[in-house]
Amino acid sequence: MMSKKITLNFKIWRQSSPEDKGKFKEYQLEDVSVSMSFLETLDLLNEKLVAQNEEPVAFDHDCREGICGMCGAMVNGEAHGPLKDTTLCQLHMRHFKDQDTLVVEPWRSAGMPVVKDLVVDRSALDRIVSSGGYISAKTGSAPDANATLIDKEKADLAMDAASCIGCGACVAACPNASPMLFVGAKISQLSLLPQGQPESLQRVEDMLDQVDEENFGHCSNTYECEAACPKSISVSNIARANRQSILKSLKG
């Protein structure tokens, strides 16, 4: 069976620089094979644009297998598009119909400003990690790996939280532009593990302080983040982080 081809109408956000006001531009793209991924469709569009001497659409992407967290855009108002638990690079065109119109725009958040077209600056997320999102185990200081036993259940929960790819979809989907799912996942992973205990309370304080330093909003439990997360990270991680935060405030 040969793959079906469809025609799509795009409205894509074009913004030449952070200072530029930006605007939507319309493009029609024919011969889109439904077995193509969303980013391959953008590749095809860009090939066409270069042939017409128009600058291609800038977009971030790298692994194209849903794990690096580099890609992402709002498609028809949804972070990473309409398919649940799926990054933009893993979204295939078989989920769209012939003549569909797709509105494509960058993550919108003061904490992650637009750099160009669909590319945003997510360095705030790195700064949050560097404020405490780790266990300080210096190279060479580790005991034998099996010296510390860890409940399988806890290890599995930690792994669920650790699946976060740092793409920023949670921030983009949140009405307050809060990064709490991202932050909660890291705090949760490390506080579930015995190795993470000694720094646990200091970590939560430092990371939340850094969130306040950045241009992000606060969590008000709308759960939009969980719905948008391509790795189905649960909001229970936010609850677990909040518990750590309360413990910290009780202990001072």
């Binding site: 780790y134 266990i135 185990a137 190279t139 060479g140 200081s141 580790a142 005991p143 034998d144 790996a145 099996n146 510390t148 036993l149 860890i150 409940d151 399988k152 290890a155 599995d156 930690a158 792994m159 650790a162 992973q189 490390l190 593990l193 190795q195 993470g196």
Partner: peptide, 22 residues
């Protein structure tokens, strides 16, 4: 062997048996 030790110390959530061992 040192690598596995180091990674576990950093909180890498390797797969475990029900006994808690790696």
């Amino acid at each position: 062997n040192n690598i596995i030790d180091q990674c576990v110390a950093q909180g890498v959530p390797f797969a475990r048996e029900y006994s808690g061992y790696l």
